[in-house]
Structures are given as structure tokens and as C-alpha cells.
Nucleic acid binder design. Structure first.
Lengths: 249, 249
DNA sequence: ATCTGAAAAATTGTATACAATCTCAATAAA
DNA sequence: TTTATTGAGATTGTATACAATTTTTCAGAT
């Protein structure tokens, strides 16, 4: 229905850019970030054709990306019916936060004995950016940065498996928040984040893991169950997806 | 190099079998079980062509299966270089068991308040089969059944996220064991399994989670680090893969 | 004998063709 | 009006063709 292949040839011949950085990985990150910024509401259909068109690749690549997202739990794929942004049942919300508390307590505890002062500095910087985004009313960015703090802390805990699980849970939680959260709530968790970092940098594992536990309970509490299914995305959402987001730092 | 397509046509026209049960899922399970039974050693190359030939499907399907296995951590895929059964570094072994203890303690604790007597019965049955496999010297089967006990218990804990993590960790551990374990060790953990089930069915969460923790430490202790890379699988390994394993019950 | 490099073979990466399935609207029957 | 039905259009499932890359082989030089 449009010119079949031209973009990837263009990229190949005209742009010699330093060692092609794996197209699928790039697309995956675009979509993943969009989810974390609540640009794609739960229930949104992700058509292979339209995504492929938006990014200038064939369905093969899109399929790979969607399968990865499915495995991380942020996308649902039904046989012969395609992919959509995952819904979260109220039962799942409870399980989600229970699992997060279990994992992130352990991560925080580990981090206390392994994290370097330099890493703490990077974490502080993330909180600062989150606060700044909030000041600038950029809610989507603040949300993503908040999630990113948990993700980066997880990477610093010295256990790649726990870190991977945390990644999956944090992004899944972000979707749940998008689905259930009241419109005009109070999203600021910067103060809590800073207190956790205080405890970590002082090496107080009990205190740090306790604060993290309470922090996650706090997030859970902010959610109020409201049955709501999101539908019909704005028409140009896929084209918008292909735009690069604001750089992280 | 051989007849391109014939098998799937055969399946389509001659066998009307009740609602085709998703070919990729089926293949995934074959390979997954083979991994858990130590039929595929770490380092074994998994060629798309050969796997496709063995199962009578195109590379498309095999690719999907391999990507899923990669995401679960039991297969490594390197760009342009294909897939192989995952290696586990000694650092990872430590992280693996640390994560398992964290997750399975929580699972066991939850199970104590949720598991039904009937479910306990099914778990007992698994232990019984494991013991039987050991008696019959069928070590591969015993290994798989041992892992399956942990997997099924995880499903009974009422938290799908923790269950998913446990699944990934248990299979990953199985590979680590295949890679590191001494040849003539003592693999019997049936007694430990039964004691854990005793505690669970009596509803003693503290005791049960403590026993599970010790059990996993025990498995970890049994592993002795030995640098060893497995190579050259027997030639017909892929054909053997396509055979159905012994039914679970 | 060993190393080097280039050609050949094998393997993976991606796009695409066609089949299978689902969606949905238009039509007909109740 | 409501409910079935049917068929066109859209979407996904799978195989396959071809391109890109890696691996292997083998001649030729040192």
C-alpha cells in the first residue's frame, strides 16, 4: 500500500553512521520509553503494519520487538489478533506490588554494601532531574525518571537477575499506574527517594530496605481502583513514536 | 540442501487433529525440557536451520522459540552468530542462588496460607515420581521433576510474577548444575522436598520458608566450581529433540 | 610446518509473498 | 428492531528469497 522498501537502503547507502546500532534494539527502546511516559495507554492496539511503517522497517523487526515486550509483560499478544498495551487487573496490581516489595527490599539491602559514592552521585542526579521535570510540569518525563531511579539502583545492586526482575516490575507498575491512577493526584516522591539514598549512602541496610518497602507501599496506596478501559489512540500516535525522546542527561 | 517444504503441508491436509496446538509453543517445550534434563550442554550451538529441519518448520518459528528462550536466560544469542545454550559464570552462579533464595522464600511463605490439600497432594506425587526416577537411575528425568516441583509450587503461591521469576531461575540453575556439577555426586533431595511439604501443609510459614532457604543453599553447596566448557554434541541431537519426552503423568 | 589472505560455504538478518484468521459492515430473515 | 449470515477488507502466521555476515577451506608465501 506504499513504497515497499526504501528506507533501509537509504540508511545503508547514504548514512555511514558508526556501526549500525541494531535497529530492533532502538525501536524497542522508543516503544518502551513511550510506555513508561504513559504515551501509550493500556489497551492501545499495536499494529505490526503501522509500527513498521512508522519506523521504516518490515513487520519482521516489529514482531521481534513486540515479542520482547510481551515477554516483559508490558504488551499482550493474542494469537491471530495482534498486540496491545497490557491491561492490569486489580488482582495483578496487588501481586505486582507484593513482588516489587520482595525484590526491591533485597536490592536495596544489597546496594548498601556495594554501591560506590560515585554511583550515589548519579542516583542523586536522577532525583534532581525528576524534581526539575515536576517543576516544569513535565509529568511524563518525571514518571519515567522516577522509574529510572529504581532501575539504575537495581543495576547497582550487583545481582543481574534481581535487576532484571525489577526492570520488568517497574515498567509493569508504570502501566498499572497509567490505568488506575486518579487524574489530579500528588505524584511527588522525590523526598522519599532522597531519604532512601541517604540511608543507602550511610550503609544502613535495615533502614534503607525499610524505607524502600514503605516507599513502594506508598506508591501502591496512591493508586485508586477505577474500572476503566482506554481506547482509540490519537491517529498519529505511531508517527509520534518514531521521534527521538529528549536525551536522558 | 533437502526438500524445502513438505511436512507442514502434510500436517495441514492429512491430519485434522483437534485445533492445532500452536506449533511454536510445542517446540519451545521440547527444547526447554531437553535443557532441564541436561540433554543439551551449555555451549551447544542451536542452528536455526537444523532445528527447523528437525521439527519440520521454517526458521521463522525456530527464531521465535530461540528468542523466547534467550529472554528466559537459558539461551544466548549473539548478533550474526546465532544461538547457543547459555553458559553460567561463577559470578552468576552466586547471584543466581541468591536471587532464588530471595524469591522462593517469599513463594514458600505465601504458599503456606494459600495452598489447598489437593495441591499438596499433587506436589507429593511429584516427589514420589522423582524418587521413582532416581530408583530407576533415570537421572535426567529426576532432575526435571525436581525442578518441576519448585515450578509447580511457585504457581500455587498466588503471585504470577514471583512464579514467573522462579521459573526463569530454576531453569537457569539447572543449566548451571549441568555445567559445574561433579560427575558422581549425590543428587537426592527428595527427603528435603518432603520436609518442606510437611511444613507447608501444616501452615508453618516460618519453618517452611526456612527449610526452603536451607534447601536451596544445599543445592548451591553441591555445586563445585570446575572450569569446563562443553562442546561437540552428538550428531543426531536435533533429531532426538523432536521425539516426545515421557509424558508427565 | 606455519602463517596469510582470499574465495567458498554456511549461517543469520530482513523483507516480502501468500495463506489463515479475524473484524466489521451490509444484507437478509425473524 | 433485532438477530444471523456472509463476504470484503484488514491483520496476523509462516515460509521463503535474497542480502549481510561469519566461518571454513585451501592455495601460496614465508
Amino acid at each position: 500500500m506504499s513504497r515497499p522498501q526504501d528506507q533501509q537502503n537509504t540508511a545503508l547507502s547514504s548514512a555511514p553512521e558508526s556501526a549500525r546500532p541494531a535497529r530492533d534494539e532502538e525501536i524497542y527502546e522508543h516503544v518502551f520509553d513511550a510506555l513508561l511516559e504513559h504515551k501509550l495507554a493500556p489497551g492501545t492496539r499495536l499494529s505490526e503494519d503501522r509500527l513498521g511503517q512508522a519506523f521504516g522497517v518490515s513487520r519482521t523487526i516489529i514482531r521481534k520487538v513486540l515479542q520482547r515486550l510481551e515477554h516483559e509483560g508490558v504488551v499482550e499478544i493474542q494469537r491471530n489478533r495482534g498486540a496491545m498495551v497490557a491491561h492490569t487487573s486489580s488482582t495483578q496490581v496487588g501481586q505486582l506490588f507484593e513482588a516489587r516489595r520482595c525484590i526491591e527490599r533485597a536490592i536495596t539491602r544489597n546496594a548498601c554494601t556495594r554501591v560506590t559514592p560515585e554511583q550515589v552521585g548519579q542516583l542523586r542526579e536522577l532525583v534532581r532531574q525528576e524534581q526539575q521535570a515536576l517543576d516544569e510540569q513535565d509529568r511524563g518525563r518525571a514518571l519515567r525518571l522516577s522509574g529510572e531511579l529504581h532501575l539504575v539502583l537495581a543495576e547497582y545492586c550487583g545481582n543481574e537477575f534481581l535487576a532484571g526482575f525489577a526492570r520488568s516490575l517497574v515498567s509493569r507498575c508504570s502501566l498499572a499506574i497509567a490505568q488506575y491512577e486518579m487524574a489530579g493526584h500528588n505524584p511527588c516522591s522525590c523526598e522519599e527517594h532522597n531519604r532512601i539514598l541517604d540511608a543507602i549512602s550511610s550503609g544502613d541496610a535495615d533502614q534503607a530496605s525499610r524505607l524502600m518497602d514503605e516507599h513502594i507501599l506508598q506508591i501502591h496506596t496512591r493508586i485508586r481502583i477505577r474500572e476503566e478501559t482506554a481506547d482509540d489512540p490519537p491517529e498519529d500516535i505511531f508517527a509520534a513514536l518514531a521521534q527521538r525522546r529528549t536525551p536522558k542527561t
